[in-house]
Design a protein around this nucleic acid. Structure first.
Length: 822
RNA sequence: GCGAGAGUGGCGAAACUGGCAGACGCACCAGACUUAGGAUCUGGCACCGAAAGGUAUAGGGGUUCAAGUCCCCUCUCUCGCACCA
């Protein structure tokens, strides 16, 4: 459908805005950077290495999104700034080009992804070039390159060797639209993260990574990382540590003896005296064993019903249902029998798949008990006053004490937790346990467009990893790459690929036909960049340890739990394998904000997506970059308003004219000097903490001072400003640097020198308050004492009139304010 | 429900450790230069008020000489997680 919409770019009707012509100089400088190798990093010899990494993009057919460019520019400014501070900066770029997203698009347009992706990459490369990023293109990589995914497969083998990759048949999330399994992290609100289709439950044999084994370390290390707090919080949340205990409830057999037991996990062992029934997940293996004949039919019906439900309904339906198994267990604390129920609100995948229900002190159990008329026994209550537990559960713990709990009655909750577990553990009926919400990472995908998992199945040898020397297992070029409903990858349909000699015995074996999750590709790419030219190792150890861990990583918070958690995990495993000397990949991470347009989220369907090409055509890359950074705080994003860019362009025009108009050899104005050095300080401080919007504002302020009243600036006043602007607007800065006689790149000229002594003025303006109310200002000599300031106030009738009596007290903040209390 | 963040002019936003609220920019208004300009430059621009002055940072309390900033309560919005025992 063709829509006639307003042009996406704000276009003044005037033929040409006065000012410099970005098109001419930007092309010139990109060519010169390339010719001079300005942006190529000497990885071997570089002193003071600084790895400025940005999350690499998925090269979509639509081209570079302004959100990508916002992130890249923010990283580029930081990288360029570090270079000006004397670091050797490495700013690589690549493409995360495998995956369902690419494949679905390829299917939609009917072009093979192997054809499509290179085209998209070429377009991305062109657009990123235009933006003037300080990228070292000699280390460009794409995850779809066999020379890359060869090492992705190698990473898989490292995990496999360490027993961290395993195959199991499990209930998995199946997307009926994408026709593949999804990781838990890729299911959002019960729907596929990519296409929004409701996810179904399937039982399939899948490859998993044992990330749960690292849960504790992944959690604990967060405290040592200089990351955005919101990102760390998201990871903590996702890992979901909870401290509690496993308690054992012996099952009462028909003859009154106990040969089996139900083990439950609880965070509230203190409430065990109020456990009036047990609940097993419908899939729990004990269900079959404990259910007596007379209730078997009802139980089986319920189990079958629960199995039919997809995971979505299971997780979103909050109303409680369940069925009594007919069996009883013994509460180890009270010695009394409690009925064993099954209910789908208990999940097999968390804890032990069984709970002790304490309806008096758990909202879900309370709801269930009321629905099925089970006893509710209060065992905890507030110290001050009483509560009724008829209407709702009492879940408070602060200042609460146990009641109806035998010899534990009267204890505080925290104390009782320990005491009860300690006592029960004597009889092996309890042990302290830490549980994590995190699940193992399912990496199998029954799709085409990914790296084949390097495994061969042999009737004699079993599951055999492909030897490293035989990598890569090439993804064959096939025409029928569409997935089907079978749960088996399209690769299985290709006999010549599927059958291969067993690497161990040489007999006819079968290849694993699943490919690995895209998130595995991106979980180690930062290790590959510095070693991208090596074809004998995934990464060179010495160069890796010179350049990593990454000094600064910038990307979107949408990857807070996926990519960032997986990357940390893979790095930890490689560390444990003795392959690298660090276990955390990113020393510092900052999440950038989101760009909206005129207050609304950008989307293709609304037709309000900013196309960077159009704006760069119109205003130049420098103005576009600077404007993106001026919109708002980098870590919070901003509102792209089409007309706003003109203010930034005006600033660059004034900079251009200032250089060309500047006088040489004249004396600089004292006030301008002072403002200059204040600005050098402020811009440096602001850029260091990614406060780009205020850095730009400070430079504009300086411009206003320097050119106040159509003043002609001195060259010495303008030159440092060109240096300050350079990370934001690199092309114009280079051009003006050359105009002013620079012979090297402005990025090799360093940061302008800051002179603290020039910042001080002889006189200073102080705020005057009387009784805490601001009444005006006074001008006093710098370093004036309280008495001088007070005298100055009294000398000013407009201020003195507020001082209606003898000052009772005077608060004097040197250099800032004087507050007179009368 | 849990976790994180936010609420300031017409708009995007500043105010980093409590110390002149609204820097900088957009839009708007006026003026200069101009044949003209949507270019450039100068000035104005939170609200009430003629002024003096008063009132303002979602709302309500509090701490302090002083609160957008700290504490308590309430409301609203955004994002993440969510039957996780």
């Amino acid at each position: 459908m063709i829509q006639m919409t307003k042009p996406a770019v704000y276009t003044p009707d005037a033929d040409e805005p006065a000012g410099y012509d970005p098109a001419a100089i930007e092309e010139k400088w990109r060519a010169r950077w390339e010719a001079r190798g300005t942006n190529v990093t000497d990885l071997q010899n570089g002193a003071r290495p600084f790895y400025a990494l940005m999350m690499f993009p998925y090269p979509s057919a639509e081209g570079l999104h302004v959100g990508n460019l916002f992130a890249f520019t923010g990283n580029d400014i930081y990288g360029r700034f570090q270079r000006l501070q004397g670091h050797t900066v490495f700013e690589p770029f690549g493409y995360d080009a495998f995956g369902i997203h690419s494949e679905n698009y390829a299917i939609k347009v009917g072009v093979h992804p192997a054809e499509l992706i290179p085209r998209n990459i070429e377009n991305f490369r062109r657009q990123v070039h235009r933006a003037g990023l300080m990228v070292d293109w000699t280390h460009e990589l794409s995850t779809t390159d066999p020379e890359y995914y060869r090492w992705t497969q190698w990473v898989f083998l490292q995990l496999h060797r360490r027993g961290l990759a395993y195959k199991k048949k499990a209930a998995v999330n199946w997307c009926p639209f994408d026709k593949t399994v999804l990781a838990n992290e890729q299911v959002v609100g019960g729907a596929c993260e990519r296409c929004g289709t409701l996810v179904e439950q399937r039982f399939l044999a899948q490859w998993f990574f044992r990330i749960t084994e690292y849960a504790g370390r992944l959690l604990d290390n967060l405290d040592t990382l200089d990351w955005s707090e919101s990102t760390k919080a998201a990871q903590r949340n996702w890992i979901g540590r909870s401290e509690g205990a496993e308690l054992v409830f012996p099952v009462l057999d028909a003859d009154g003896r106990s040969t089996r037991a139900v083990t439950v996990f609880t965070t509230r062992p203190d409430t065990i005296f109020g456990a009036t029934y047990l609940v097993l997940a419908p899939e729990h293996p004990l269900v079959e064993e404990v259910t007596p004949e007379r209730s078997r039919a009802a139980v089986q019906a319920y189990v079958a019903d629960a199995a039919k439900q997809d995971l979505v309904a299971r997780k979103t339906t909050k109303s409680k249902s369940g069925v009594f198994t007919g069996a009883y267990a013994t509460n180890p604390a009270t010695g009394r029998p409690v009925p064993i129920w099954i209910a789908d609100y208990v999940l097999m995948e968390y804890g032990t798949g069984a709970i002790m229900a304490v309806p008096a002190h758990d909202e879900r159990d309370h709801e269930f008990a009321r629905a099925y008329d089970l006893p509710i026994v209060q065992v905890v209550g507030p110290t001050d006053g009483t509560v009724t537990i008829d209407e709702a559960a009492y879940t408070g713990t602060e200042g609460a004490r146990l009641v109806n709990s035998g010899r534990f009655t009267g204890m505080g909750v925290a104390e009782a937790k320990h005491a009860i577990v300690a006592e029960l553990s004597v009889a092996n009926a309890a042990k302290p346990v830490v549980n994590y919400r995190l699940h193992d990472w399912c990496i199998s995908r029954q799709r085409y467009w990914g790296p084949p998992i390097p495994i061969v199945y042999c009737d004699d040898c079993g599951t055999v990893p492909v030897p490293e020397s035989q990598l890569p297992v090439l993804l064959p070029s096939i025409d029928d790459f569409r997935p089907d409903d079978s749960g088996v990858s399209p690769l299985a349909r290709h006999d010549e690929w599927y059958h291969t000699p067993c690497p161990q015995c040489g007999k006819r074996g079968r290849r694993e036909t699943d490919v690995s999750d895209t998130f595995l590709d991106s979980a180690w790419y930062f290790l590959r960049y510095p070693s991208s030219s090596r074809d004998d190792v995934a990464f060179d150890r010495s160069i890796t340890e010179k350049w990593l861990p990454v000094h600064s990583y910038i990307g979107g918070n949408e990857h807070a739990v996926l990519h960032l958690l997986y990357s940390r995990f893979v790095t930890m495993v490689l560390h444990d394998a003795g392959l690298i000397g660090f276990e955390e990949p990113f020393t510092r991470f900052r999440a950038h904000g989101l760009i909206v347009r005129e207050g609304a989220k950008m989307s293709k369907s609304k037709g309000n997506v900013v196309n960077p090409d159009q704006y760069i055509d119109q205003w130049g890359a420098d103005a576009f970059r600077t404007y993106l950074m001026f919109l708002g705080p980098f870590e919070e994003g901003g509102d792209f308003r089409d007309k706003g860019i003109s203010g930034v362009k005006r600033f660059l025009d004034r900079l251009w004219r200032s250089v060309h108009d500047a006088e040489r050899g004249g004396a600089s104005d004292r006030d301008v000097q002072r403002k200059l050095h204040q600005t050098i300080k402020k811009v440096g401080d602001d850029v260091a903490r990614l406060s780009y919007n205020t850095a730009i504002a400070a430079m504009m302020e300086y411009m206003n001072t320097m050119r106040a009243g159509e003043r002609t600036p001195q060259l010495d006043e303008v030159r440092p400003l060109v240096q300050l602007v350079s990370p934001f607007a690199p092309h114009i800065a280079e051009e003006l640097w050359e105009v002013m006689g620079g012979t090297t790149s402005v990025f090799d000229a360093g940061w302008p020198a800051f002179d603290a002594s020039l910042v001080m003025d002889d006189r200073i303006t102080m705020a005057v308050q009387v009784n805490g109310k601001t009444r005006g200002t006074i001008s006093v000599p710098t370093g004036a004492a309280q008495d001088d300031a007070l005298a100055a106030v009294m000398a000013d009738p407009a201020l003195a009139k507020f001082v209606t009596g003898a000052p009772k007290r005077v608060i004097f903040v040197p250099g800032r304010l004087i507050n007179i209390i009368v």
